[in-house]
Design a protein around this nucleic acid. Structure first.
Lengths: 137, 137
DNA sequence: CTGTATCCCGCGAGATACTG
DNA sequence: CAGTATCTCGCGGGATACAG
């Protein structure tokens, strides 16, 4: 992730700050739930409850938590319609759309390499099984 | 992430299996440490200790744990040189290299949007500060 | 140097209950 | 429906010690 050598010169302060910010953002974004939420919103604008259904296995808490985080970082936009019952919609912002593109490529990668990975797993798993003393009856 | 409608027909069993495998892989790969390790190995082949230095802030335990996981999934290759003291090198495999490309684009995205994100944060952070009763003095 | 095994604490995260 | 607030528990993950 573009590691730099800091020499101690004055303008390095800015670089160091940007670098730590970048790491922070990376930590925020590089997590399963955040990525899956962005991916889901890529299809279309979604309401809270739709997101909960769309993002398989996410809990109420993790969903709100990640939505707040993504909003804070300006990746999604939250729109509240003053009706009853409340209606809240989440949409990707520009940067959010851009991020979505790279997530798409990550998904592509996953599907393209399913076979290779499954094979690799079988290999190492059976090798490991061979090591440990036979537990089969 | 390419969600499908399952109808219950026989060949759906395979699709469902592939889908759950894809989610599993996604969960493995979409985590901070795994991504940072892959990214580090993109530059060049690295030894264990080099990786520990390269991947800022990772603990001994998390490093080995993720290395095992990545090896099991066939994304990295582990080479042991029978010398003393031991020398072990980790390298990206083909799929690992491919993954690295998409991670690069994620890093690019991060750096391209640093400004936007920082601004968004300032906005929501100051807004939040305005809400809570003034704690100053 | 590389790697496994323990111990143990803190926090991630689910479940639940309650407001608007 | 959307969201916040608690409580609680399990386990993620750091520190440490030890082995090859």
């Amino acid at each position: 992730m573009v590691t730099k050598q800091f020499t101690g010169s004055p303008e390095d302060a800015d670089l160091r700050r940007a670098d730590s910010l970048a790491r922070e953002i990376f930590s925020d974004v590089a997590n399963k739930w955040a990525l899956l939420i962005i991916e889901a919103l890529g299809e279309r604008v979604l309401r809270f409850s739709e997101l909960r259904d769309e993002v398989e296995g996410i809990s109420h808490k993790m969903l709100t938590q990640n939505l707040r985080m993504l909003e804070r970082n300006g990746l999604i936009e939250r729109t509240v319609y003053p009706v009853v019952p409340p209606r809240v919609e989440y949409a990707l912002t520009g940067p959010g759309q851009a991020l979505r593109v790279t997530i798409d490529s990550l998904c592509d990668w996953t599907h393209r390499h399913l076979g290779h990975i499954e094979a690799a797993r079988r290999r190492t798993d059976t090798a490991a099984a061979a090591d440990s003393p036979d537990t089969g009856r």
